[in-house]
Amino acid sequence: MSLTSRLRVILRSKSDRALTRLEDPREALDDSYEQQVKMLQQVRQGLAEVATAKKRIELQGQEMGGRYQRLGDQAQEALNQDREDLARTALERRSLLEGQVAAIRDQYLALAQQQAQLQDNERRLAERVAAFRTEKETIKATYAASEARVKANEAAAGIGSQVGAVGADLDRARDRVAQMQARAAATDELLSSGALNDATAAPDADLERQLSAGATKADVDRQLQSMKNARAADRSPGPHPGSRGGTDAWLGIGEGTTTP
């Protein structure tokens, strides 16, 4: 397989994995769940803000109610002291305060209604998010189990998406092994014929090797001829005059011409 073909196979495999990730329903379900959770958080944040504003108006109304009561008591005390002018002033302020209380009471009731609506929306949305989460996890578990079955079946049948790449790897491995075997056989022949010289050997080492082989052959030929001559003369060959006997006989090996 050429380099271009290998790159094509690799890119196709990577693109297939990328498409598989894009089409994976589990990721889509997780994204949808995260969006719903964000919506629920926004609703809860809005509910907290409305409740805070409602509480602030409630505290302001309670403060106005206390002042309203004090102004009524002051008007009554002024009349008891025959101070009609002070009683009139207290009542006038009390009348103005009634208008202010009426205004914030309307705001308070509107915020209370809005809070009730937000609480109802938060409850229903929280229930929907919880139900969606349960359904999501069920679908993801079913998909994972099905995916595992598909991979196991494809592996058993040998039809997975990686089979083509595996077959190509096997073909490349076989080609490399065949090339290496052919190269080893060729280098063996070159070494045996002397055509491939050892770059680390000493100069003219090949000549020394051939001369040594020729000397060994000549010595063998001489020994063989000596054995033939001894047999022709009908005498048994004896030990070489220069050979040693006993346990140190090996010391005489190679001293002169060796006769078996």
Rank of each mutant, 00 (worst) to 15 (best):
L3Q: 15
T4F: 13
S5P: 02
R6M: 10
R8Q: 14
V9F: 06
D16I: 04
A18C: 08
L19R: 15
L19Q: 11
R21M: 13
R21D: 11
L22R: 08
P25F: 06
R26G: 13
E27D: 10
E27G: 14
A28N: 10
D30S: 11
S32W: 04
Y33Q: 15
Q36K: 13
Q36H: 07
K38D: 05
M39N: 10
M39F: 04
L40M: 14
V43S: 05
R44Q: 11
Q45G: 12
G46F: 01
A53P: 01
K54F: 03
R56M: 12
E58S: 12
E58P: 01
M64T: 02
M64R: 12
M64C: 03
G66T: 07
G66Y: 02
G66D: 09
Q69P: 01
G72H: 07
G72K: 14
Q74M: 10
A75M: 03
A78Y: 00
L79H: 03
L79G: 02
T89C: 00
A90F: 03
L96R: 14
E98N: 05
E98L: 12
G99A: 12
Q100S: 13
Q107E: 11
Q107G: 04
Q107M: 03
Y108H: 13
A116N: 02
E122D: 09
R123V: 02
V129D: 00
K140S: 12
A141K: 14
A144T: 09
A148D: 11
R149E: 15
R149G: 10
A152G: 10
E154Q: 15
A155M: 15
A157V: 03
I159L: 06
S161W: 04
S161I: 13
G164N: 09
G164H: 07
A165V: 09
G167Q: 13
A168M: 13
L170K: 08
A173W: 04
A178F: 06
Q181P: 00
A182E: 13
R183D: 11
A184M: 10
A185F: 08
A186F: 03
T187Y: 07
T187A: 06
T187G: 01
D188E: 15
L190A: 15
S193C: 03
A195G: 11
A199D: 06
A202K: 07
D204F: 11
A205P: 01
A205F: 06
L207V: 12
E208Q: 08
E208N: 07
R209Q: 11
Q210H: 07
V220N: 12
L224H: 07
Q225N: 09
S226T: 07
S226C: 02
M227Q: 12
M227H: 09
N229L: 10
A233D: 14
R235A: 12
R235W: 00
P239L: 07
H240M: 05
P241A: 08
G242H: 04
R244H: 04
T247K: 10
T247P: 03
G256N: 05
T257F: 08
T258S: 08
T258G: 06
T258H: 04
P260R: 08
